[in-house]
C-alpha cells in the first residue's frame, strides 16, 4: 500500500513540469543552505593548514596556498590546551555520570505515587525552571560557600536539571507496573528494583539524557568564566575563548617561539586551535544525532 503510494507520487512527479521545477528549486535551495554551513567550516580547515600567513580581502582560496602542519604544531605544543582538554574531559565524564545517576534516582522517587508529598516535591523541582536567584546572588552565595576555584562548582549547581528529571520521570511513569512486580515478590526494595529492573529497561532515554548532559558539559564555559580564576583549572572552551576571541595568546603561551608562531600567522593558528579542540564533537555528532533526536520526540509527545 505504502509502496504503491510512493510509486504514484513518483510517476506524478515525472508527469508534471511544474512539479519538476519545484523539485529543482527545492534541491537547489537546500544545497545552497548546506553550503552556507559547510563553507565556513571548510574555509577554516583550509586556513588551519595554510602557511602563507597574510590574507587580504582580494584573496579568495578554497585550498591551502602553501600546505603546512606548523599551525597544529603550535597548538599541540601549548600545554594549556592539553590541560584544558583534561579539565573538560574530567568535568564531562564526572558531571555526566553523577548528573545521570542523581537525576534518574530522583525521577524514580517522584514517579511513585507512594512518595510522600509528591506534588509538592515535583513543584519544588519544576519551579527552578522558571525562577532563579540570578547571576549576582548566585555568584555571591557560591563565593560565601568557598566554592570559587573548586572544580565541584562546575558539576554540582547543575547536578539535577528540572527538564531532564521530568522527561525521565514521565518515562518511568508509563512503564507497566508488572515489570517491577517479579522483583518485588522476591523481596527487593525500591532501590534494588530500580537498579535491577528499571534502569536496564530505560537505557534508551538514559542514553539520550546522558548525551545531552555530555554535550552540555563539553560546551559549557560560563560557569568556568565566573567561578574559576586558576588558569590550570580552565576548561577547553575558556582557553579557546582566550586565544581565539580575545587573541591573548601572551597570557597562556609558555615559550617565546610559540608566541612568534602565533604572531606570524594568527588567523591560521586560531583556526587550528578551533579544529583541534572541536574535533571530538565533529567526529561524534553524525553518529550520535539520532539519539538526540529521539529525546526530542519523546519530549514533544509527553512534555
Amino acid at each position: 500500500m505504502v509502496l504503491r503510494q510512493k510509486k504514484d507520487r513518483r510517476t506524478h512527479i515525472r508527469k508534471s513540469p511544474g512539479s519538476r521545477a519545484f523539485d529543482i528549486c527545492n534541491y537547489l535551495m537546500l544545497t545552497l543552505f548546506c553550503l552556507t554551513i559547510l563553507l565556513p567550516f571548510w574555509y577554516l580547515l583550509v586556513l588551519s593548514f595554510d602557511k602563507f600567513g597574510n590574507v587580504t580581502a582580494q584573496d579568495f582560496f578554497l585550498w591551502p596556498r602553501e600546505f603546512t602542519l606548523d599551525n597544529y604544531k603550535a597548538v599541540v605544543e601549548n600545554p594549556y590546551i592539553w590541560q584544558g582538554y583534561g579539565n573538560t574531559i574530567l568535568r564531562t565524564v564526572a558531571g555526566t555520570f553523577l548528573s545521570l545517576i542523581c537525576t534518574a534516582m530522583a525521577a524514580y522517587a517522584l514517579s511513585k505515587d507512594s512518595f510522600p508529598n509528591r506534588k509538592f516535591w515535583s513543584f519544588f523541582v519544576v519551579f527552578t525552571m522558571f525562577f532563579s536567584g540570578g547571576l549576582i546572588p548566585t555568584y555571591l552565595w557560591i563565593r560565601d560557600l568557598g566554592l570559587l576555584d573548586n572544580r565541584l562548582v562546575l558539576i554540582l549547581p547543575g547536578l539535577v536539571g528540572a527538564y531532564n528529571l521530568v522527561l525521565i520521570r514521565n518515562f518511568f511513569k508509563q512503564m507497566p507496573p508488572e515489570l517491577e512486580e517479579s522483583a518485588r515478590i522476591d523481596g527487593a526494595g525500591d532501590f534494588r528494583a530500580f537498579v535491577s529492573i528499571v534502569l536496564p529497561v530505560s537505557k534508551p532515554i538514559l542514553a539520550t539524557v546522558a548525551l545531552w548532559l555530555a554535550v552540555g558539559h563539553w560546551n559549557a564555559w560560563f560557569d568556568c568564566l565566573v567561578y574559576i580564576r586558576d588558569t590550570r583549572k580552565y576548561v577547553l572552551q575558556i582557553i579557546l575563548q582566550r586565544i581565539v576571541i580575545e587573541g591573548t595568546i601572551q597570557n597562556i603561551s609558555t615559550t617565546e617561539q610559540m608566541t612568534q608562531e602565533f604572531n606570524a600567522r594568527p588567523e591560521m593558528v586560531k583556526a587550528a586551535c578551533i579544529y583541534f579542540t572541536t574535533l571530538p564533537i565533529l567526529c561524534a555528532y553524525p553518529f550520535l544525532q539520532k539519539y538526540f533526536v529521539k529525546g526530542i520526540y519523546v519530549g514533544s509527545l509527553k512534555g
Binding site: C102, T103, M105, A106, W121, F124, V125, T128, F131, S132, G133, G134, I136, P137, T138, L140, W141, I142, L145, L156, P157, L159, V160, L165
Partner: peptide, 16 residues
C-alpha cells in the same frame, strides 16, 4: 541528592 543540590544552588541564592 537532588533536594540538597537544588536547595543549595537554586533556592539558597534566592535569599541573596
Amino acid at each position: 541528592p537532588a533536594v540538597i543540590t537544588i536547595a543549595l544552588f537554586s533556592y539558597a541564592p534566592m535569599y541573596g
